[in-house]
Amino acid sequence: MAQSTLKGIPRALRGALDKVALWSRINSPWLVHFNSGSCNGCDIEILATLAPRYDLERFGVKLQGSPRHADVLICTGPVTRLARERLLRTYEQMPVPKFVVAVGSCSITGGAFHGCYNIVGDIGDVIPVDVYVPGCPPRPEAIIDGVVQLLTKLKGGAPAKAPEADARLGGGS
């Protein structure tokens, strides 16, 4: 995660700035939501996390409309033939650093829809996923936990890369 902004700055200072950048990133995850073929069950639970009972804004989470403004792509559903292209495009539109959280069983394996003719695969087949949240649908607490897992992972260093998925991205599977 090299930042172009930090080029040409002394080492020590750069370390400190990196820390600040990391801090800000952990405390300000903005989400963009993409439904690539879900049953809406997961989507309404994601929305529920923003409502007063769970209020994700407490942690700095904001739901954004444009992928350009977002840090985290929160995906639901298996990937349908038609949605695949759009999912890729949305992911590509996001500025780096960017992360992906896949919510729901069907985003992990295809779930209930496994084997249906219009499903090309799960989210991980199309874009690299950082955190999976299982459940059909997962409870709002579980979704929040997923986001927290992502942040914890960030604190521990660079997010895990999925090189194969990167290759697939290029190859367009």
Binding site: Q3, T5, V20, A21, W23, S24, R25, N27, S28, W30, G60, D71
Partner: peptide, 8 residues
């Protein structure tokens, strides 16, 4: 935090 994050 939002501001710094956007900056970097």
């Amino acid at each position: 935090a939002d501001l710094v994050k956007l900056l970097v």
